[in-house]
Design a protein around this nucleic acid. Structure first.
Length: 576
RNA sequence: GCAUCGAUGGUCUAGUGGUAUGACUUUGGCCUUCCAAGCCAAUAGCCCGGGUUCAAUUCCCGGUCGAUGCACCA
């Protein structure tokens, strides 16, 4: 039987051999951190993404957008990635080791070393020993290693661009357009599924840490003071294992909590974060993650990314890698919108009307233009505008126009108190972000689905993939490749194809071998045409997991297979 | 990036200074009335670059990829 340590090798061996995942550009030597999805892998990945779409687009109503993977420098200056998404590194002049400069400083009691500039760090580590060889660091440059891939846009290498390190920024930069699309109301959200890029220093761990990877992200814009999810009740009683940072500090295991309790007890910051924790749990179980190997871990305060306020990771246990972060659910506050507003000059606020317009009394300076006009001529308008913003003194008001201070005596204006109707306010939304690593989901689903079992002294390898993500949904076999059985089987395969089912026809070799082949790629159901079919127009349908067979009429095959795949009927129902 | 080890048909592997073993898989044929049966045949391989040598898959150097440890993983 499979031991913990070699499950990865067994899973990846099947994945390679059967066309799920291949090393990229093998013929020229593959590069760490890049993979190809083969035919079955690409199919399965599409299925996983479509399950994700069912949750976020169909259930939640957040539409999908698609933005470029290359972005101009300004985007990532604003997002903070140019500055923050980098490690301060240095190279030991004695042993040549590459090291994190801030880590060296921190180990020797320098508080907040992560926030120091490169120059500061350089001087702080001057007298410290190298953690690799023990020699004093001395004169060594501290440099930023940015994890973004850099490129240039257009000829002449004039404009700097970056491959996006997350899909989120595209949604933020489309904020104003999206707000109009959703007719100027909060909350609203947009999602994006696509490639992101991070130039990892040393990627290992196969599909777990890639330099080019697929993300599925939702950015949900909510009122900053009202983080109550409109349909929170959907998941209010849903139970999820939560590993709070308090529990982590004391080394305790996660606690099962309903989402309502988690919010009421202040464990999870707000209903939105809790809602997407529960939704993520349901989604991951749907694609085939073992619920016994799934938990939600809260980020420690010092662990959070530069933009996050509260953050929970969905972690899945892998026999090879231990607990692996698959999904991050963060309350990014208004960090991103504020940054893009400041850098772009565009508006990132939403006008929220009050339920009733509020009457606000305020004082307003009304200049006597009959006096100001003739006196200041061309500058009169500017002076009047400036006065409206100013606070008048006893004798008059001083305004500054074009760098010149001008005193306007009190008799040249009136102070009018007036009631103004304020109909609402401009607020900058907060962003709730569930962010999924599709490739990691792919790996853990394959690992959790993989099983070896003894059947009549032979090892049967089977991928117990849920029908919703299995790359091939049904197999169709003639028991013998003659006597017209093959023709009937081909017709059944055609019928299934017309019903949008991915069906594989196979007539090669013994029937048992064909079942095993399909087991290994996770095909949930197999239809077999035998000699009884010619007598009574029935076929057998076989269940991958139980290996049991049920005989059903040929003309019901498509309906039954569709129901089984959609999950509206189980094989057990069929057998009963 | 450093250190150690490794890389042989699709997969797993034997072995070698003179082009390579076996099994499984795959394909074709025979046989076969439901879970990798049997028989015959076929296809297919020494990670890449350089060096030493008459000759390198084998020895040496460099690289790539992988495993392990260190470092790294917003």
């Amino acid at each position: 039987m499979t031991t913990m340590s070699d499950i990865y090798e067994n899973v990846m061996e099947v994945a390679r051999r059967r066309g799920f995942v291949w090393p990229s550009s093998e013929i020229y030597g593959s590069v760490a951190g890049f993979i190809d999805y083969g035919p079955l892998g690409a199919m399965m990945k599409r299925n996983v993404e479509n399950v994700w779409r069912n949750f976020y687009i169909i259930q939640e109503g957040y539409y999908e957008i698609e933005c470029p993977t290359v972005g101009a420098e300004a985007i990532f200056v604003a997002s903070g990635h140019v500055k923050e998404f980098a490690d301060k590194m240095c190279q030991c002049p004695h042993c040549g080791e590459y090291l994190r400069a801030d880590h060296i400083a921190e180990e020797h009691g320098v508080e907040g070393a992560g926030a120091l500039s490169a120059e500061m760090l350089k001087s702080r580590i001057y007298e410290l020993p190298c953690p690799a060889c023990g020699e004093t660091m001395g004169e060594t440059d501290v440099f930023n290693f940015n994890l973004m891939f850099e490129t240039t846009i257009g000829p002449g290498s004039q404009r700097r661009g970056y491959l996006r390190p997350e899909t989120a920024q595209g949604i933020f930069t489309d904020f104003a357009r999206l707000l109009r699309f959703y007719r100027d109301k909060l909350p609203f959200g947009a999602v994006q599924i696509g490639k992101s890029y991070r130039n990892e220093i040393s990627p290992r761990q196969g599909m777990i840490r890639l330099r080019e990877f697929s993300q599925a992200e939702a950015e949900i814009f909510v009122h900053p003071e009202e983080k109550k999810h409109p349909v929170f009740h959907r998941y209010a009683e849903y139970q999820v294992p939560l590993l709070t940072y308090g529990l982590q500090e004391t080394g305790k295991p996660p606690v099962q909590k309903t989402m309502r309790d988690a919010v009421d007890e202040g464990i999870v910051a707000n209903e939105y974060v809790a809602y997407y924790i529960a939704l993520t749990h349901e989604l991951l179980v749907t694609i085939g993650v073992d619920p016994e190997k799934l938990r939600f871990r809260q980020h420690m305060p010092d662990e959070r990314a530069h933009y996050a306020m509260d953050c929970w990771d969905a972690e899945v246990f892998s026999g090879r890698f231990g607990w692996v972060e698959i999904v991050g659910i963060a309350d990014r506050t208004d960090y991103d919108l504020r940054a893009h507003a400041a850098n772009s000059g565009s508006s990132f606020t939403v006008f929220i009307p009050f339920e009733e317009a509020r009457k606000v009394s305020r004082k307003r300076i009304v200049p006597d233009m009959g006096v100001l006009g003739p006196r200041y001529r061309g500058r009169a308008k500017a002076i009047a505008d400036t006065m409206a913003e100013a606070t008048p003194g006893e004798a008059g008001v001083t305004v500054e126009v074009d760098g010149e201070e001008i005193f306007i005596p009190a008799e040249q204006y009136q102070i009018r108190e007036e009631e103004v109707e304020v109909r609402g306010e401009e607020v900058m939304p907060h962003v709730i972000e569930p962010s999924y690593g599709i490739d990691r989901m792919m790996y853990v689903v394959l690992e959790h689905a993989y099983a070896e079992e003894e059947v009549e002294e032979e090892v049967r390898r089977v991928l117990r993939l849920p029908p919703a993500v299995a790359p091939v949904q049904a197999a169709v076999f003639p028991l013998m490749n003659r006597d017209g059985l093959d023709l009937i089987a081909r017709q059944i395969a055609d019928t299934l194809a017309r019903r949008q089912i991915v069906a594989q026809y196979d007539d090669s070799g013994a029937i048992g071998r064909r079942y095993r082949r399909q087991d290994e790629i996770g095909t949930p159901f197999a239809v077999t045409v035998d000699y009884d079919t010619k007598e009574d127009d029935t076929v057998t349908i076989r269940d991958r997991d139980s290996m049991e067979q049920v005989r059903i009429p040929v003309d019901q095959v498509a309906d039954v297979v569709c129901s089984l795949i959609a999950g509206t009927m189980t094989f057990r129902d069929l057998a009963a």
